[in-house]
């Protein structure tokens, strides 16, 4: 493997705090992500990992702190704007349209890139048709990339869990994101499926240069995959560094790796 080269800091989280009523989900958390990096957030259940992702893509609004994405600082943002700026994500509990086919689900990921309004699309004529063909071609490249040709026309509700996760990744990729947020991409998978998924994540990062922030429970996967790891515990940033640094960090061992939290 060649040396990994990273660009500028593309995402910077500064002193972010988030609470729901009296419950503090995040407390003064800061970290950054460089372009082209695979960044992991780990931590026990309830540590605030998913909340962190939700803050980054504008679903939660932090009471304090700022998020800087591609040089633009913000405190509040709507999910729609986040998507328009190039942030895409997958969810811990798969959020696909179960009755729709793989192809259609991934096509929905192109929604923001479509110029024609729904009337044009309903007519499916002229420019609308040409546009759809372009998007379809892009989606076919994703289908090829993720090796899901065989389920192109299968309703996703009928697919096994591991494949649904892959379709969800496909939909996120369809938005051509600069930053990809993956919430437990490997939860509930067997060893083989995990290996496949790891391979896809590395390939996405490699071939498209996409920056990736992921949450994952499987330690061996995290340590293999990521360039840097941020550790959260009870909403606080406990450690931040390369997998080796984190693995040797005393506080981390005590709080997470050593202790049973489930």
């Amino acid at each position: 493997m060649a040396e990994r080269n990273f660009g500028e800091v593309v995402l910077k989280v500064d002193n972010v705090s988030l609470s729901f009523g009296g419950v503090t989900a995040l407390e003064n958390v800061s970290f950054d992500t460089r372009e082209h990096e695979i960044r992991a957030i780990i931590g026990p259940n309830g540590a605030g990992k998913s909340s962190m992702l939700n803050v980054i893509n504008g679903f939660y609004h932090p009471q304090d702190g700022t998020i800087t994405f591609k040089g633009q600082a913000r405190k509040q943002m709507r999910t729609h704007d986040a998507a328009a700026q190039g942030i895409a994500r997958t969810f811990q509990n798969i959020a696909l349209f179960k009755g729709m086919t793989t192809l259609d689900n991934i096509m929905t990921g192109r929604n923001l890139k479509m110029r024609r309004n729904f009337l044009w699309q309903a007519l499916y004529w002229g420019p609308a048709q040409r546009e759809e063909m372009e998007h379809r071609e892009f989606v076919e490249h994703i289908i090829d990339f993720l090796e899901i040709q065989a389920i192109r026309k299968t309703p996703v509700g009928r697919l096994p869990y591991g494949l649904q996760k892959r379709v969800e990744l496909g939909r996120a990729l369809a938005a051509e994101p600069d930053l990809l947020l993956l919430d437990e991409p490997m939860a509930g998978m067997n060893t083989e499926e995990k290996e496949d998924m790891s391979r896809f994540i590395i390939d996405v990062n490699d071939d498209f240069g996409t920056t990736i922030v992921l949450i994952e429970h499987d330690m061996s996967v995290v340590m293999d995959l990521s360039d840097r790891v941020a550790v959260l515990d009870y909403g606080k940033l406990l450690a931040d560094g390369t997998p080796d640094e984190v693995r040797g960090n005393k506080a981390v061992i005590d709080a997470y790796l050593g202790a049973v939290h489930d």
Partner: peptide, 8 residues
């Protein structure tokens, strides 16, 4: 070519 870009 997929995934082979980073190879020696």
């Amino acid at each position: 070519t997929r995934g082979l870009r980073g190879y020696d």
